[in-house]
């Protein structure tokens, strides 16, 4: 009986982990891969940046929310 109980306990954690991995794989920003050629405006709308144009520089890309 121990095995099913253990599975019952950790099952949701495993499922959660699978979901997390799936979501990570959907991200365009993967370690080991090149920044995609993704074009976005700045928050003030005054400029546009293509992430792929950042080549040639050491870049820190910070994804955040103001809350």
């Amino acid at each position: 009986m121990r095995l099913p109980v253990t599975l019952a306990l950790i099952g949701p954690l495993l499922i959660g982990s699978v979901h997390s991995n799936q979501d990570r794989s959907l991200s365009l920003l993967q370690p080991g891969e090149a920044l995609p050629a993704l074009v976005l405006p700045t928050i003030d709308g005054k400029a546009t940046v293509n992430l792929a144009d950042l080549r040639g520089k050491k870049v820190l890309l910070i994804q955040f929310a103001s809350w």
Binding site: L28, L29, L38, I43, G45, A52, L54, L60, I62
Partner: peptide, 25 residues
């Protein structure tokens, strides 16, 4: 940059990534 549609596909924030001169994360 403004990404309201989450085109980067990120699952959560904050995330800080270092990108080298070759453009590789």
């Amino acid at each position: 940059l403004w990404d309201p549609f989450n085109l980067t596909g990120s699952a959560a924030v904050p995330v800080v990534l270092a990108v080298d001169e070759a453009g590789v994360i």
